[in-house]
Design a protein around this nucleic acid. Structure first.
Lengths: 124, 124
DNA sequence: TCAATATATCAAGATGTGTTGAGATATAGA
DNA sequence: TCTATATCTCAACACATCTTGATATATTGA
């Protein structure tokens, strides 16, 4: 993820309705939810309002859609969130571990996968 | 960091000049840089333009300022970035480790501080 | 105190964003 | 095919954001 991508994603997440949609879909899992159910969860937002925000999020790569019968199901694109977090950490971690360390430590879950140095606590 | 704080920070980071300022100040370290130097690094942005964006970032809690002689030095507030990263991970990690794991793994530096489970690779 | 430097404030204009309401499109079932 | 359901598209408006240029404030040194 480069700076331009990050800007797009930050803009997508800087609006209350959109941030709530993303959080809802992240917790909803890979199957996602139909647009109508998402709208109902957003204080019963109108369909045009939902289309505006869902389209915005989809263009930013944070969610994707698929039709199923009459409904259109939206689901979170997890790698985009991962990449955003990695982007935020990138400039800090080298030289400024005080940014990454608390964030990582705040997780009850900890780093494991594909990281041989995890147990060494080497640099961060 | 709650949702309202996160929205403010996302909005602050969703503008090219401001994102570049934050990245510059994060790498510049705790001493920070004078407003003029930051403006010079932003394609020679005008003082009013810089004041607008620096004020925006300061209100969002991403940077802070202190006067030193004729200059005003701006520096990154690292905990705000940490908290934002933790906020992004919060809804994902429980149940959707596929978000946090790649982000953490992407770091060449790894978690150590105040995390006894780091070597176990227990949940994430 | 005066001039120079560094930065902030203010008003105005251009542009971007979010909401609404009306209408269009697509799917499913009678 | 007709109707109902689910969602999208479009135009218009209100509001927010960003930039610019002019001006004000604060600090330093002569």
């Amino acid at each position: 993820m480069d700076e331009a991508d990050a800007l797009t994603v930050f803009a997508a997440l800087s609006q209350e309705t959109r941030l709530r949609i993303v959080r809802l879909l992240v917790t909803a899992g890979p199957d996602g939810l139909p647009a109508g159910a998402i709208g109902a969860a957003m204080d019963g937002a109108s369909s045009s309002r939902m289309a505006f925000h869902l389209g915005h999020l989809e263009r930013a790569g944070l969610i994707r859609s698929r039709r199923e019968g009459r409904s259109i199901l939206y689901s979170a694109v997890y790698p985009t969130l991962s990449n955003l977090i990695a982007f935020l950490m990138r400039d800090c971690c080298d030289g400024h571990p005080e940014v990454c360390a608390p964030a990582v430590a705040a997780l009850s879950c900890t780093c494991n996968a594909s990281n041989e140095d995890a147990h060494a606590g080497r640099r961060l």
